[in-house]
Amino acid sequence: MTPRFDQLLDRFFYRPDEDEGPYLANAPRVERAAHAMEEVPEEFLSFSLEGETYAVPIHAVREILKITAVTEIPRAAKNVIGLINVRGEMLPLYDVKTRLKLSTKLPQLRGAGDVPRAARIVLLKDLEGDAGILVDRVSGVVKLQLSKLEEAPDLGVERSAIAGIARRGEDLFILLDVEQALS
């Protein structure tokens, strides 16, 4: 990660003692202007789940949060880990691993030891209501060319939650369908 990129990610992190967390909309877009390409590639946020690299369009990302206290919701939908308090707003936290069949049960977020240190909550914007997903690690912001999108091959993963596969050089990014992942 370049130092500049580091700064970019740092702005997204929510610190509980701060009153205001910055929103993506206010993030500087300096790099974009600097690289004018013929096909303007879309920017994606990439993160890892069980060692695999996934990505979502950056305009669907509201914030990236450190893991905060999660309140269990009795009798809620199966892939809902619980409720998180984002500066007074009560939002659901989903587990996408079970949805993608990467794991079989919901993570227990009782204490700090339950999740890897690099784990984060990616807060997504959605028409039905904003929601967060739990990820193992946030890798960074990447530019991907959508024209080169491939259909997801049968990886033994639930297909409908995946929008496609994108490559950039040697790297493979699995694009998550936000709406499907949250259902």
Binding site: G88, G129, L182
Partner: peptide, 27 residues
């Protein structure tokens, strides 16, 4: 009392959530 977001509306027996002094969300 804060309403639960649209997605959680149908949760039986829960009408909303509130924030305690330690920022914990409580149903």
């Amino acid at each position: 009392t804060k309403p639960l977001s649209g997605r959680l509306r149908g949760t039986p027996g829960v009408s909303g959530a509130t924030e305690l002094g330690d920022r914990r969300a409580v149903l």
